[in-house]
């Protein structure tokens, strides 16, 4: 196997490198990728189209929002998949062998506990900031959602899984995850129902007469980011909770 692997790797590496002299120079602003009308368009017209300074957010949630919707679905699938694979249901014991004795996390340290108590609210606040401020600074639904999920994970690490699950029980996080995707695709369907193509947020201005198309786009982007954050935070916690407890959702690390 080692030899097969080595040969495959050398062959693949050679293949990848063989095209290297055909590459544009590093940092070349006029390489086909950088100078293509597509990326020029994003840089020049984002503001005009939606007034969002962070082009990455604009491209993510608007121009290529279709991709992002499926990206959210991928996250959802990951959570559902882990539950489908690992979750021990029906009260059937998992049959897992007792794990070897570990030192980590067995005792809940007072220092860790206190730190977490101080940290977690800040973390959650920061997560909301990241979600909401994705238009103007790095961040958005994914990053914020992960941080939000991480705050629950931190709870679980510091206090054990059960207290964390009290705050975010299984039924709730599964629902949240689905609702997140519903929010995202709901924005798309709303556009569809108003007679435009899927995810064409501009048309949503008819719902709020005081705004124009660009603003409608901007607000819709925030909306879908919130949907993303719902799914991502719920699923990140779900992944951790299942993996840490071998699918039993008890005990944990």
């Amino acid at each position: 196997m080692k030899w097969v692997g080595l040969i495959a790797v050398i062959f693949t590496g050679g293949l990848l490198l063989s095209a290297m002299d055909d590459f544009p120079n590093w940092g070349d602003a006029h390489s086909p990728a950088n100078a293509s009308p597509v990326s020029q368009y994003y840089i020049e017209k984002t503001i005009e189209d939606s007034g969002v300074p962070n082009m990455v957010t604009a491209v993510l949630a608007d121009y290529r929002g279709y991709d992002t919707m499926f990206e959210t679905v991928v996250v959802l699938i990951a959570g559902i998949a882990i539950m489908a694979i690992l979750r021990v249901m029906n009260g059937v014991p998992g049959g897992a062998r007792p794990s070897p004795a570990h030192e980590i996390g067995d005792q809940h340290d007072i220092i860790i506990g206190t730190t977490c108590r101080l940290l977690i609210p800040v973390l959650q606040l920061f997560a909301l900031y990241v979600i909401a401020h994705g238009h103007h600074s790095p961040g958005g639904g994914f990053q914020g959602g992960v941080i939000l999920g991480a705050s629950f994970i931190l709870t679980a690490i510091a206090k054990g899984l059960d207290p964390a699950l009290e705050r975010l029980p299984e039924k709730r996080y599964v629902k949240l995850a689905f609702v997140g995707v519903v929010i995202y695709s709901g924005f798309g369907v709303a556009c569809l129902l108003l007679g435009e193509n899927f995810l064409d947020y501009g048309v949503l201005q008819v719902l709020l007469p005081t705004i124009d198309a660009a603003e409608a786009r901007s607000h819709s982007m925030l909306g879908v980011e919130v949907g993303v954050a719902f799914t991502v935070s719920a699923i990140m916690f779900a992944i951790y909770a299942n993996l840490a407890s071998k699918g039993e959702l008890e005990g944990g690390l």
Partner: peptide, 23 residues
């Protein structure tokens, strides 16, 4: 970078450790 910091360095490492702990 932000995403990698949260996802890669954060969640990935944590779930890896969780699995290692359970196995």
């Amino acid at each position: 970078a932000f995403t990698e910091a949260t996802v890669g360095a954060g969640i990935s490492a944590v779930i890896l450790i969780a699995t290692v702990y359970n196995t």
